[in-house]
């Protein structure tokens, strides 16, 4: 008899875990809270993925296609885990949707509940939601995805755009002391994309330091050398409104200009990643540990990053901390292997 494994979350990590398990012949229940698969990349219509700018649909679309192809994956859309009980080494889980509830026994569980974008309105200095032309990276990603890159205030194309890094990350005031890892890369990628498609529009990036880790480093060389993006060292202290319907970024260029107040047509905030309400919810429902940053805590961050604090429950993707889509996909596969091994051992 085939193993039964529950995967919670249909983003890149959960999708890949489900697909891998189904290839092993496992019966997979894939529970997704939204009415569609694909997670945040789909929800916010990510357009291109770094580092090679391939269309997001090539990656996410491919995984969704495989998951929806039927086979041994059963997708529960707009559903949630309403009850969770340990049953020896197995788990009795009730899955609830608008159509009703269903209780099943699973051999193991993969949690891939992902992250939430930080809400920049929580940090008043950025004036998000106060000025129409202050948007964040997910808003811009959606605009680009919908081919509708214009100033929200007047519907006209912007001529000068600022990208502000580390919004809601590395900031003890907002309570997120960690680095969200991908927002530097996403912002530089967006600046390049913008310069490519709208060469008349100037791009500035304001940074404390640029963390385009590993091979993503190439991106900011490209941004400077091929796309004339201005990269200025100084975190923004305040955003105010200026004359002629502009938004003014105020800060200190700590290397060159000293204090500055530069008017822009549009400001893009690199809002970071948070564990969201789903992480504590999983923690309390499944009885697994939460870390001090609000993400789910691996048993051993180095040795077994895919294991939760409870045997039989595995973790994958951004639910354990900010990470790139490629890393989430890798972790989905790794968690699938772990969950499968556990299920086979306890058959």
């Amino acid at each position: 008899m085939a193993e039964n494994i529950l995967v919670i979350g249909g983003g890149p990590a959960g999708l890949n875990a489900a697909v891998m398990l189904s290839e092993l012949g496992v019966n997979v229940a894939l529970v997704e809270r939204d009415s569609f698969l694909g997670g945040n990349p789909k929800k916010f219509k990510y357009k291109f993925l770094f580092p090679d700018m391939q269309p997001a649909d090539n990656v996410i679309g491919e995984l969704i296609k495989k998951a929806e192809a039927g086979g041994s994956i059963k997708v529960y859309y707009s559903s949630e885990v309403s009850d969770f009980k340990e049953n020896g080494k197995k788990f009795d889980v009730t899955l609830k949707s608008a159509d009703g509830s269903e209780t099943k026994t699973f051999d193991s569980v993969i949690v891939a509940t992902g992250f939430e974008h930080f809400d920049p309105a929580r940090d008043a200095k950025y004036s998000y939601q106060l000025f129409d032309d202050v948007i964040d990276i997910k808003d811009l990603e959606r605009m680009m995805g919908e081919n509708n890159f214009v100033r929200p205030s007047n519907g006209k194309p912007p001529k000068k755009v600022a990208f502000i890094l580390c919004v809601g990350s590395r900031d003890r005031h907002v309570g997120n002391q960690y680095c969200s890892r991908v927002c530097c890369t996403v912002s530089v990628k967006q600046a390049i994309e913008m310069r490519e498609h709208f060469p008349d529009c100037e791009a500035y990036i304001f940074y404390m330091d640029i963390r385009t880790y590993g091979f993503f480093e190439d991106l900011y060389w490209q941004a400077m050398e091929e796309h004339d993006v201005q990269i200025v060292k100084g975190r923004i202290a305040e955003i105010t409104s200026g004359p002629d319907n502009t938004v003014i970024c105020k800060g200190e260029d700590t290397l060159l200009r000293g204090p500055f107040e530069i008017p822009f047509d549009m400001v893009v905030l690199a809002s970071g990643m948070e564990g969201g309400p789903q992480s504590p919810e999983m923690s309390s429902k499944l009885g697994i540990e939460l870390d001090e940053h609000g993400f789910l805590k691996p048993e051993n961050i180095t040795l077994s990053p895919f294991k939760s604090s409870k045997a039989g429950i595995f973790l994958a993707g951004a639910c354990t901390g900010p990470k790139a889509i490629s890393d989430s996909i890798t972790e989905g596969a790794a968690a699938a292997m772990n969950a499968y091994t556990y299920a086979v051992k306890n058959r």
């Binding site: 404390m208 975190r235 923004i236 202290a237 200190e252 700590t254 204090p259």
Partner: peptide, 20 residues
């Protein structure tokens, strides 16, 4: 302190004096 400049960017006298 990583020299981010936020404090100085928001500091009122910084606009008038050589002070940071």
């Amino acid at each position: 302190c990583l020299n981010c400049g936020v404090c100085t960017g928001g500091c009122p006298p910084h606009r008038f004096f050589d002070f940071s």
